[in-house]
Each structure stands twice: as structure tokens, then as C-alpha cells.
Nucleic acid binder design. Structure first.
Lengths: 191, 191
DNA sequence: ATTATCTATAGATCTATAGATAATGC
DNA sequence: ATTATCTATAGATCTATAGATAATGC
């Protein structure tokens, strides 16, 4: 039963981190407060000293989840922008990403539920998507800015869609075919 | 209070039809049995003479929902396969489709939740996705069968992903840009 | 004194079932 | 006689709150 202010801030982050993972794994309504608190080593009662409501936690957890995969790819990237594009496509469409939605892209894991969320949550997501598109455009070859942006939008759509299909499909072979095929064609698009 | 066998079959279909729409609109867990039955002009009690459980209804409703948009596009298509491809892309990425998930593609509306569903549901979806890919491949130009299949997979991924992004985004302008851009580039891909 | 956390529970909601009612169909 | 539907409710689950407890920090 730690009670210092520093402890509380750490506890808060821990709850958000756990929620950020579990919500991507099980959907925005898949886990209850009691279970999340238990995973953080706490009990239900303490929850409302940290968040005004379950909904507030969801918004915070989604915010924390959104930029994660991009930061990871950028951090690991070493070569030029073309190499980073290749890395983005291969990492995003990897079997590891498919099998671990909890640490992956929040949009492919929660797209449908985000579309049904309130304005505040969707505004958050909109900003992130805007950034993602600009980031991908900056990795694309050619000097025509408009063409790069268009290709970036197609790339992002194909990434999100291919991951959605690969996760929905129960046939491992078909799932792998989807990931590989889309990765190859996207890399051609940028060569 | 109709009670004939013929009436019951009609009632069954009506419930499935309503569920098929409402589940696409509000997610697989978004609507309760009582509300669905009320929309069908019935009450909760009768539900279990039609379905073993809520889960059974969800499976049936999803099955009914899956092929809908494809049938509609095929029915409306008149020209050759290239014209049908154009029609597919334009219809799928229309603002009408974006704004009416209840009558649209179940995969773009429910992708994330399907990935979390049980094996039986996912097997159903897998078969449908396999068909969709073959159908799209048959609409693609060129005599190389493997290349057509690859392009079909990219097309389907981009359609599903673009619709997911367009629905998630709360900025109407960005949403429209995503739909238009992906539609244009996909049509180029098949020209 | 304040507050982060605990235990306990009220209140809402939802699935599923029990038993009654009113049609069908042999 | 059978059964499709009705009303009513049991049982489970989940969010949010109330009041107690045990630390921190002036």
C-alpha cells in the first residue's frame, strides 16, 4: 500500500500501460476495471482516484497506444528513407505484429470500435493518422509531393487492411500469403 | 401473435436481418437481445425458440452479412470485368458505404472483433475472404494469374483499410481524401 | 490532515430460463 | 397436443460509490 505522490504517478502510468495493451488485445470493452486493476496489483476501489470514469481511462490508454509502433520502427531504422520504408512495411506486415496486437498498431486492432467512439477519441486518432500519413510520405521516393502523399495514403490503407484480413483469417497459409503479397507489392510501389 | 411454421421462418429471417444490420453498426456486442427482438416487434422470451444462444445469432447474422455488398455490386454491374472492377472500387470507397456500415462490408465494419471470435466464426469469414479474393482477381486485367491474384489481395487490403481509416477519422475532408486517393490509385493499378 | 488504497455493496444491464397464454395442425 | 410467443425473474457481471484503513507529509 504505497501512498506517496511519486508512487501514485507510477501507479497511474502502470494502469494506463496495462489498459493500452489489454484493450488492443480484447477490444475497447473487452476488459473490466476489476481485472485491469488486479493485473496492476490493485483493487477496484482505487480506480476512481486515478480516472473520472472507465471511459477516461480508455481515452488515455488509446492515446498511449497510438504512436507506439511508429516510434519503435523509427528508433530501429538506420539507413535512408527508402530503407526505412522497407523496414516499416516488413515490420508492420510481420507475423510477430499479427500475433501481438497488444503491442502493435492501435488502428488495425481497434479500427471498427474507434469509428463508433465519441468525437474526442476520434479527434485524437485523426491527428495521429494525419501524422502517420505525413511520416510515410516523407519516406517515399520521388520529388512530386502530391504523388508521395497519395502513395502514402495507399500504403497506410493497405497496411491496415492487410493486417485486418490476416488476423481475421483462420487459415495460417492464407494469412501469411496476404502479409507477404501486400508487403512485396508495396515495396515495388516505392522502387 | 402468429404461430404457424411459415410465420416462424419469416420471423427467424427478420431477426437475423435486423441483427445483421445492427451488429455491423454497433459491433458484435453492441446490441442486446431485448432490443433486437423489440425492433422485430417481439419480446425477449421468444428468442430462445429461434436460437440456442446469443452467440448462435451472431454467427448466423454475420454469415448473412458477409456476402451482401459483393452480391449488390455484381448485380448492378453490366460491362466487362474491367468495368466491374471500377464499379467495385467506386462503390466500396463511396461516402454512402462509409456512412452506412449496417448495409456494407462486414469485414471493414467488424474486422477487429472477427479476429477475436471463435474458430467457427473465423472459418466462415475465411471462406468468404477467399471467395472475395478470387472474384476480384477475375476482374483484373492481364493473363498472368499469379500477378492478378497478388493485385487482388492488394486491392482488397487497400479497400478494407481505406474504409477503416475513412470511418475512424473525424475530419470530413481527410476522410474524403483517403477514399478518393485510394480509389484513384487502385483504378490506375488495373489500367 | 490528507490521501492512496482497501473491502463491501448499490444499481444498472444483460443473458437465459420458467411458467402462462393463445394460436396452429393433427 | 404442440409450439410460438408473452411476462416475469433468477443469476451473472460490470461501473461507480461509501466508508474504513494505513501510509505520507506538513
Amino acid at each position: 500500500m504505497g501512498h506517496s505522490k511519486a508512487e501514485k504517478a507510477k501507479t497511474h502510468k502502470r494502469i494506463v500501460g496495462i489498459a493500452s495493451k489489454r484493450l488492443r488485445e480484447e477490444g475497447l470493452e473487452g476488459v473490466g476495471i476489476a481485472e485491469l486493476m488486479k493485473e496492476a496489483g490493485l483493487t477496484v476501489g482505487g480506480f476512481y482516484k486515478h480516472f473520472g470514469s472507465r471511459h477516461d481511462l480508455v481515452a488515455e490508454a488509446l492515446d498511449a497506444a497510438l504512436g507506439g509502433w511508429k516510434r519503435r520502427i523509427n528508433a530501429a531504422a538506420s539507413g535512408g528513407s527508402a530503407a526505412t520504408y522497407t523496414r516499416l512495411v516488413d515490420d508492420y506486415l510481420s507475423e510477430a505484429h499479427r500475433d501481438h496486437p497488444g503491442t502493435g498498431c492501435a488502428i488495425s486492432a481497434l479500427g471498427g470500435e474507434i469509428a463508433r467512439s465519441d468525437e474526442r477519441t476520434r479527434a485524437l486518432v485523426t491527428g495521429q493518422i494525419r501524422n502517420d500519413i505525413q511520416w510515410i510520405a516523407s519516406l517515399i521516393r520521388g520529388r512530386n509531393k502530391n504523388a508521395a502523399r497519395s502513395k502514402a495514403i495507399l500504403t497506410f490503407s493497405a497496411l491496415v487492411g492487410a493486417m485486418g484480413l490476416a488476423r481475421a483469417v483462420s487459415d495460417e497459409k492464407l494469412s501469411r500469403e496476404i502479409l507477404k503479397t501486400v508487403a512485396e507489392l508495396l515495396k515495388e510501389l516505392n522502387s
